[in-house]
Design a protein around this nucleic acid. Structure first.
Lengths: 248, 248
DNA sequence: CGACTCTTTGAATTTTGTCAAACTGAGTGG
DNA sequence: CCACTCAGTTTGACAAAATTCAAAGAGTCG
């Protein structure tokens, strides 16, 4: 609830700047973006399918799950949100939400009104491009997830998941030495990967036995990164973490 | 190869305008967009993962498949392109392509350079928003596909696919009376839905027997739309075909 | 009429799901 | 400090969905 979040540590700016060079003006405008801070407990819906939100959520810390529910009540998590992500940036241009988002852990959130975001984009076309790019990267992650869910068997599917999360968390300073905190339950993992909890559990045991992963509570350690990457057929290109934009 | 494509029938303009009101200036600028026309035969790659294209492909007619390939060589189609789509619009802001696109039928393509697109976006911020929105809708389709592939069994998964294609084709005038031309092989269907050709074939037979679909060559007819929608748990909200934008 | 691609079939196997219950560990209240 | 609770993990036996492999039909095009 404190309004003391230091804007120079804003993980959004940090993340976008890692691939995008802002001018002083642009960075200043981003920092000046009015943001209403809040702390949300775990397992709360931040928004629901069908909502027509008038603001976006910048995730400052914690983990969120973006999900949809099938007719039979089965939940599919389609993305995990980590620090620096705006899980509902698409609501800026799509009136109705076609997905829900809930917190998986306690989350520090910065709410930014669509109005302020639109103003910012209008004044700074390159910031528009940067935000647009963020949504395109999310799309690239979706494509990779479809490949993962549709074509890989459980073992390498789960391996791929760990690879992706480790790289994404590393990019915002939340992973070191091939280790990270990953407060995601086996049930949630199954919901994200199109598997049952039971099957996730059995495969994880096999992966531990094979020395692919080590877990202690929510801490995950990867003893052999190359091996995990190989099992998960992981190539980080789709995360577009390099500054590969053509525009000047 | 003919340069005689009438710009007033440009399916991109038609599609975007169905949810977005352009000013005369904006429409004029869109029509004036230089476009190099080409006809590409079926089963040709328009682009490949790893490419760094300097232009986008506007699909004027025909069908494309956007796909990725797993380590084991299994192909996952992550989206189908139909008239009016720009299957590689994301290449405008992501330097490296993380997917391939190939034609499924003979396609009429309009190539538009990134340079021209960027110029257009710079001059007309609302066109930027319209393009951005298109990529966000694609993302929404990806989310629904993940739900479909991850959580629905083959029977309703395939039903959902037919529902989506019928609605999308209808939106660009390519479906009428719950019938359309869908030149997609059972193998491609399997590649899109995370199923084997054999299994797709068996399920399709069951669906025909149940009176859910009728096929004659590549023509598909839906005798009972409500039933198919129910089986496929289909709710078209995620296609965002209504003009639901908040901005004026 | 081939030559092709696409669809269909059959039998055996594998992966993954289902159901139901027990176990574990962290936090809570008496 | 010790039950007690509760969410999360683990286990076992069984069932179902989907895959694999191999081959035979059908339809289309030159």
């Amino acid at each position: 609830m404190h309004a003391s979040f230091p804007s120079q540590d804003n993980p959004l700016i940090q993340k976008v700047e890692s691939v995008f060079t802002f001018t002083g003006d642009e960075r200043q405008a981003l920092k000046a973006l009015p943001m209403q801070l809040a702390v949300i407990k775990e397992n709360e819906d931040l928004m629901r399918e069908g909502d027509r939100p008038s603001r976006c959520c910048l995730l400052l810390s914690g983990f969120t799950g973006t999900y949809k529910v099938s007719g039979g009540g089965k939940r599919q998590i389609v993305n995990f949100g980590i620090a620096g992500d705006i899980p509902d940036l698409h609501s800026l241009h799509l009136g109705v939400l076609d997905n829900s988002v809930r917190t998986l852990t306690t989350c520090q959130i910065g709410f930014i009104t669509h109005e302020d975001l639109r103003d910012l984009c209008e004044r700074y076309p390159r910031i528009t491009a940067a935000f647009w790019r963020e949504t395109l990267i999310e799309g690239a992650i979706f494509r990779e997830w479809m490949l993962n869910i549709g074509r890989r068997e459980a073992y390498s599917r789960i391996a791929h998941f760990f690879c992706e999360m480790l790289v994404r968390l590393g990019a915002v300073g939340l992973a070191e030495d091939h280790a990270c905190d990953l407060p995601i339950t086996q049930a949630e993992l199954g919901e994200a990967l199109g598997l049952t909890t039971v099957h996730v559990n059995r495969v994880l045991q096999q992966m531990r036995a094979d020395g692919l992963i080590e877990t202690k509570g929510t801490q995950v350690k990867i003893p052999d990164w190359d091996k995990l990457k190989q099992v998960g057929e992981f190539d980080p290109t789709y995360l577009h973490l390099e500054s590969d934009q053509a525009a000047a």
